[in-house]
Design a protein around this nucleic acid. Sequence first.
DNA 1: CTCTATGCAAATAATTTGCAAGCAC
DNA 2: GTGCTTGCAAATTATTTGCATAGAG
Lengths: 148, 148
Amino acid sequence: MQLTCNLEIQMAESILDSLRAGGKKLTKPRKAILAILEQSSLPITVAEIADQLKKARAAVDLVTVYRNVAMLQELKLVNPVGLHEGQMRYEFRHGREHHHHIQCRGCGQIVDLMLCPLKKLTELIEEQTKFVIEGHALEFFGWCPQCQ
Amino acid sequence: MQLTCNLEIQMAESILDSLRAGGKKLTKPRKAILAILEQSSLPITVAEIADQLKKARAAVDLVTVYRNVAMLQELKLVNPVGLHEGQMRYEFRHGREHHHHIQCRGCGQIVDLMLCPLKKLTELIEEQTKFVIEGHALEFFGWCPQCQ
DNA sequence: CTCTATGCAAATAATTTGCAAGCAC
DNA sequence: GTGCTTGCAAATTATTTGCATAGAG
């Protein structure tokens, strides 16, 4: 079993539909990027996606990764995750519940937090500010057991 | 009354104490940067700080602003605010309650939200993850009344 | 006088843009 | 074929680092 096998994943139909609906084509580089995102259980950077693809002998230009990630964001297939690291991370939405993250200030490790306390609050803020809220970012920072 | 007058603000004693405690000196560029931060009611970027100082005829090198903002962050005198804009924003802590922000996806306007629902949740996450939580980032994104 | 701080130049890093050639549909 | 896509080069933008000089305490 070669690494490249990992990139030949069965893509969920809903994802393909979103792409088609957006007039997007299923190219080889794009499939590979989607596969990496789908495999990644935690938010990942553009550089990391490119690195993994290179290791899997399916190298894709950094620029192509940037463009695809931007496109996937527009189609709401990926979420941006900003951890104040100087670069963005992205995570696949498909099949995952809305959630948040905590990152260790020591080792940088990221852990998923499968919770969100913001539904009620969102409504309240919409009332008070007259904004229509489309999304939110919530991340925690601290020290993991090993780094404490 | 010249613009430069605005930069000659009475600095709170607690701020001066923090600086002294950190072995920091009160230079003219530093005072000017602190004054801008203190005046700004919303989180501001490094470039904006430098621009305002230039307009106030108290120009300070961008690098100096970067270094000061980093230092102030270490002393916990300013908070970083990441709105996924490709650059960081910073806001002064002194005399302000812990709060969050909402930004309009249309015009970029930022509004303070004087609330935080995360105290209980923080304890819960600490219990569940064994992390020691030091802080969190929470921002909302949406469309302001004008941009809807 | 000692040590921190600043400015300028230059390096690094993240992200974007332009354009000709390639490939999906 | 037509139009979205890609790769490569190059431009932009954000942030950091090195170093000699200036200034605070």
